[in-house]
């Protein structure tokens, strides 16, 4: 990708972040935002910017980056431009893990991602097993069907878990099913960012293997990749990323689908540059979607996952036409 394109991606992220700081139930002028960032001006504006909107934007950037990298890695490894953690049921599995942990009163964002990761890893294993049992792991459609089925199963599992739960737990869990950045705190965002960094670095380190896996298993093996081991590592790291985003912001679908495609269309060639570009673009997309979620029907807030789905579904359909 040319330097100018990278600059464009960064610019999109900055614009989204600035909009996130200025827009909301209370609109702030650019001057007021600028002042509040450095602790000057109206006390209300300072509180809104520093304790509400800034951590929210930071969480959005981190979540979007995790979803973007995870989607880019899964698409290349599964050789499927429609692969992404939400559609593959991986996020659903993570939600089951997270809700289980919450039901057991483990709510710290240090621990929650681990519970979500266990759920996600089980889900990805199940999806691959279903696809293999159908005898067509390479067929994108079978894989997605497996993902949808496992996702539906995960939803059902969450509902069952919730059936005797106190009402505030139910509310919390529903929040998970729909995705939101509204509970963002600096403390939690730091944990989420640390986990996303770990998963992201793992996947970038696997970049050369992922590049070859995108050619197919036999070519990858011919060129020197231990296919089984590399694939397992990619799934684990991508599941970790997806799980962390679920623990931090619930089910935010389609970001991992849309963002790598945009970055590729902008000229990213190597898998590593697609992953890095998807991290930046993913952050921008989630922050922008969150701005929409907060402003379209203000003062009411739309679920973030609903906004990304409204963006992602038409995109998915246009891609589906191309591969079938």
């Amino acid at each position: 990708m040319r330097p100018r394109t990278w600059l464009l991606l960064f610019l999109a992220l900055v614009v989204a972040a600035l909009a996130g700081l200025a827009l909301g139930p209370v609109s702030l002028s650019p001057g007021a935002v600028w002042g509040a960032l450095f602790g000057n001006g109206d006390a209300n504006a300072i509180a809104i910017v520093q304790t509400l909107r800034l951590p929210r934007i930071a969480l959005g950037v981190v979540i979007g980056a995790g979803l973007g990298v995870s989607g880019a890695a899964l698409q290349a490894t599964l050789r499927n431009p429609l692969a992404e953690p939400y559609l593959l049921g991986v996020s659903g599995g993570a939600a089951v893990g997270a809700v289980t942990a919450v039901a057991l009163h483990f709510t710290s964002l240090a621990v929650l991602p681990i519970a979500a990761f266990i759920g996600a890893a089980l889900a990805v294993t199940l999806v691959l097993f279903v696809a293999r049992a159908a005898g067509a792991r390479g067929d994108p459609r079978v894989l997605l069907m497996g993902g949808v089925v496992v996702g539906a199963f995960a939803n059902a599992a969450v509902m069952v878990l919730l059936a005797g739960a106190p009402s505030e737990t139910v509310r919390g869990a529903l929040w998970w099913m729909m995705g939101s950045l509204s509970d963002a705190t600096w403390q939690g965002t730091r944990w989420i960012a640390a986990y996303v960094l770990v998963g992201g670095v793992l996947l970038i380190a696997l970049g050369r293997e992922i590049e070859l896996l995108a050619l197919g298993e036999d070519p990858a093996a011919a060129l020197g990749v231990d296919v089984e081991r590399a694939t397992r590592r990619v799934y684990l790291a991508a599941s970790l990323l997806a799980a962390v985003t679920v623990a931090g912001a619930g089910l935010v679908g389609f970001v991992g689908l849309v963002v790598p495609a945009i970055v590729r269309a902008m000229g990213a060639r190597s898998v590593r540059s697609v992953m890095l570009g998807a991290a930046i673009a993913g952050g921008a997309l989630v922050v922008a979607a969150d701005v929409l979620a907060r402003t379209v029907r203000a003062p009411a807030e739309l679920p973030l996952g609903a906004v990304t789905a409204l963006i992602g579904v038409p995109f998915f359909l246009s891609r589906l036409r191309r591969i079938t």
């Binding site: 698409q75 070859l212 995108a214 050619l215 197919g216 036999d218 070519p219 011919a222 060129l223 590729r264």
Partner: peptide, 29 residues
């Protein structure tokens, strides 16, 4: 892979590649 260079029967990259980048993948090992 450093000793045997193998051209499998079928191969279709999941995403389009520049020919030069494709050849460069041979250097992975």
């Amino acid at each position: 892979a450093r000793r045997i260079s193998l051209v499998p029967q079928r191969e279709e990259p999941a995403f389009p590649l520049m020919v030069r980048d494709f050849i460069a993948l041979g250097r992975y090992a």
